[in-house]
Write a protein that binds this DNA or RNA. Structure first.
Length: 127
DNA sequence: ATGATGATTGGGG
DNA sequence: CCCCAATCATCAT
């Protein structure tokens, strides 16, 4: 397996579909630790109107958590899924990762500090 | 090519 | 809160 930082990343990533490359690259570049974004925002950033399609790409993220798929939550500020699942176990792992970056959720399951959501304006264009 | 399936979302009841 | 149509990359036929 490869190691280090960004060199092996680009090599692994270039093997993926254009859509997935866009999703992963945009996420890596625009959402740093301590911040989160939504499936819809990420979709819009790459010129796609399907938040679900973005979720499809994230669930098969081959380099988690290097590619911070845990920083993508739902538009209603609830946590969303992780590794293709929405069960309690998956959610717990996702929230633990976020908590280690200073991001937390309240009792109703919503983001405690909404200010942490990064608004992404369209950056890339598909096809 | 066609149909089914989601880590969603905004609107409506 | 619950329900539903819209949207679209992927995958199975």
């Amino acid at each position: 397996m490869s190691a280090t930082a960004s060199e092996p990343l680009s090599r692994e990533i270039s093997d993926l579909t254009p859509f997935r490359q866009c999703v992963y690259r945009t996420l890596l570049q625009r959402v740093p630790a301590g911040r989160v974004t939504t499936y819809g925002q990420l979709a819009r950033a790459i010129g796609c109107r399907s938040a679900r399609a973005v979720g499809q790409a994230l669930k098969v993220n081959p380099l988690a958590p290097t590619i911070p798929c845990h920083r993508v939550i739902r538009a209603d500020l609830t946590i969303g899924g992780f590794h293709g699942a929405t069960d309690a176990n998956a959610v717990r792992m996702k929230s633990d990762l976020l908590r280690s970056e200073g991001v937390s959720f309240d009792q109703s399951g919503r983001l405690t500090e909404p200010d942490r959501v990064t608004a992404l304006h369209q950056t890339a264009t598909l096809r």
